[in-house]
Amino acid sequence: MKSEYLSEYDNIVRTMQLYIDGCKQGKSELMRPAFHPNASFFGYAGEQLAIGTQFLFDWIDKNGPAPNIEPRIVSVDILDSIAVVRLEVAEWSGKLAGSGVRMSDLFTLLKTPGGWKIIQKAFHWHAAEQRLAA
């Protein structure tokens, strides 16, 4: 029998996997169930401040498949009904992403009656720095 911690951990990772699947296939519909209806999204895409999950979903659909991304879960911290997940994604590719770029994500999740849902994704897009440095 799994401990309560392990079962919460695995449920969180399953939610994250929906996000990762959506990224890989370039289909926002795959990741939408992972997000809370009131989820928010924040970060800089180059100079532009990107706000709102609709921006994210549109971006994923327009970017298209990114089959070679290398996602790694860096940390999962669970505090009763809330959790923080840090995800590092290397080798981002696609129509908008370009190739071989890196994204650092901080997800906060809320445990709802319908399971663990992403309530916010904050991202840092390392490509912007590389471009600025070049």
């Binding site: 970060g43 911290d77 505090l79 923080v84 650092s104 901080l106 906060t108 904050a122 840092h124 720095e129």
Partner: peptide
């Protein structure tokens, strides 16, 4: 925890 332009504080 600080990652360039984003951070999380518990």
């Amino acid at each position: 925890e600080i990652i360039e332009s984003i951070a999380v504080v518990h």
